[in-house]
Design a protein around this nucleic acid. Structure first.
Lengths: 339, 339
DNA sequence: TGGGTGCGGTCAAACGTTTGGCCAGGACCC
DNA sequence: GGGTCCTGGCCAAACGTTTGACCGCACCCA
């Protein structure tokens, strides 16, 4: 590796000061066009590499944004991340990504890392049980926070998420309108704001339609295909089992449909199943999954923009923005089978 | 936000020098136990935050490792990333992650960013068409590179990947041993080393068994479910269509099985299908997918360790390590149906 | 008594940028 | 011809750490 090239290397070669070089490379109008071109040209020629740490030490802007979610491999978050990535890319921010797997200490470590690196902001989907305190701590240290997908009680920061209660209501009502009266809810937990909202939405829709809800019809579990798959036999073992299941998300729904198939039944015929999120995968599942579009792209984009605006000095008030979900009807739901 | 707390804040408060504080916080034996404790205690109490940029400016070690792959949302990479994450975490490195979507300029931008941030190294699954030049450029600037999943011709760096030719041979031979003679290969491209190796492996197995291979039996395409799904009708439209398909990866295979189901046929009965990678999902697909375990976890772990070793001064010679894949037989393959 | 050794700690120079303040020279104006 | 403005550029002080060189002291040994 050749000798490190720095501003002064260029400055010396061209008989100007480092200040001029610095300004020229950043297209400052303070330097004459001709000089600027000469400098940029030379910099390119000798392969100068801008040292961001040195710069940010001086400017205290690092161009780094931290993003932390439960699990980046979960397609739901993956779609959000894709949107965030696009937005951040366009404004030249680097993002560092991490999973917290719903472990508070992993989340704290991450925030700490971002602080140490002098990050400009954080976008996070808070781990279960995140205290408002943790968020305040970040903000106190000059790290603006934006929340996605879940909110944190008493945390005074912007939140972007789907309207879960409303969305799950769409799915439940759809099943009810098809004639189902015994409807279970499969997957998910009640420990997140999302979880509570979805369960409430389901309950509310059932009650509004005057339908009974048995406690054993709530089969909670992780939000994974595996969990849905495992829930299927439980569901089928219920005496007088329901004719339909509202699943926490598409993953659980797809897993459950697989489980139903394993039991020799046909989802969408014997048992109706709805998902949630409308992942790309939902449309090509067999049968194609009736689900609720949850605006992942919207959430990601708006969250990223809100953060960027804040970095640019806009006074982002702590608002909560709910994206309105939409029902996508496909083949996994139908009228209940007579017996 | 309170006044920035720095080493000297602590130093002043405790009437010692910043040097002592710096050493104490890093557990140097050069400072007396008692002093050290006092310093660490005070630092904690007032909420001192270590400034890594300042430190790395001095030390030229940033604790940052760049990781870039085609698409982090692809479960194949996701599983590798999970392993890398674990390894890096344990040694306190921060990793910044990015997709290149097989675009060379995105990949270059990423490497440039890592250079600017003073990253300690890069783990990458090179984009299609990556010239050895690009990698040499990184290394010339003091950024060690480790490759995963794909190799780059003439690039003199460590590579960790599965033995694709061997692995696809396992799948092909399995089908042959079941009695299939007309076997197609679905999905993937021949533009990557992986692609060529897999196709070669398939060809080689067929030829060794004395079986004919028709050109139209090669149905290339992206490595996604959607692609597999779309390939199904093409496959079925072939006159005298094959009785089995070796798919590029599990995603394509699962997509194809869905496509087969849509056509009213049953994968694993009418058409045998094999996947590649053994994603978590393969086992719960319906039918459960016969596939080839590709050692994602191994690849990720070894790559990360190799890089870490190199950072610690070990002289990592540029080796290519091939992980031996293993066949996982499930329900998506069976004897060909007589007609 | 004088020199050697360890211990605990300090000094100050770097690391590579950015930026507010300053300056030289020329054009322009009355 | 003296004042005012502009233009293009330079100076030097930060930003917060780390680290090689040094230092003072106590103790020990001969």
């Amino acid at each position: 590796m050749a000798q490190k090239i720095k501003l002064s290397t260029i400055a010396d070669a061209l008989k100007v000061s480092t200040a001029t070089v610095s300004l020229a490379l950043r297209d400052s109008p303070l330097v004459a066009d001709q000089t600027r071109e000469k400098i940029k040209e030379h910099a390119r020629a000798i392969g100068y590499i801008y040292n961001r740490r040195a710069a940010s030490l001086r400017t205290s802007r690092s161009g780094i944004v931290g993003v932390v979610v439960h699990d980046i491999m979960n397609p739901f978050f993956a779609e959000i991340l894709r949107a965030i990535e696009g937005e951040l890319d366009r404004s030249g921010q680097t993002f560092i990504l991490s999973n917290h797997y719903d472990q508070l200490d992993k989340q704290r470590t991450f925030i700490d890392t971002v602080l140490q690196l002098g990050g400009d902001g954080v976008i996070m989907s808070p781990a279960i049980g995140t205290p408002a305190e943790d968020i305040r701590m970040a903000e106190d240290n000059g790290l603006p926070v934006v929340l996605i997908a879940r909110s944190v009680k008493d945390a005074n920061v912007p939140v972007f998420r789907g309207d879960d209660a409303y969305g799950i209501g769409l799915a439940t009502n759809h099943l009810i309108s098809l004639g189902h009266t015994r409807i279970a809810m499969v997957g998910g937990t009640d420990q997140t704001s999302t979880g509570r909202d979805r369960y409430e939405g389901y309950l509310h829709a059932m009650q509004k339609a005057g339908l009974e809800v048995k406690p054993e019809w709530r089969i909670p579990g992780p939000r994974t295909k595996q969990a849905g798959f495992d829930a299927a036999p439980q569901f089928l073992a219920l005496k007088d089992h329901p004719t339909a299941a509202v699943c926490w998300n598409d993953l659980a729904a797809i897993g459950m449909m697989n489980g139903i198939a394993r039991a020799g039944l046909v989802a969408g015929v014997d048992i109706s199943v709805t998902g949630y999120d409308d992942l790309e995968e939902a449309a090509i599942a067999t049968p194609a999954l009736t689900t609720v579009w949850n605006g992942q792209r919207e959430v990601g984009q708006r969250a990223a923009r809100a953060l960027l605006d804040q970095l640019n000095g806009a006074d982002t008030h702590a608002r909560q923005e709910l994206i309105k979900p939409e029902l996508r009807i496909r083949q996994s739901t139908s009228r209940p089978k007579e017996r």
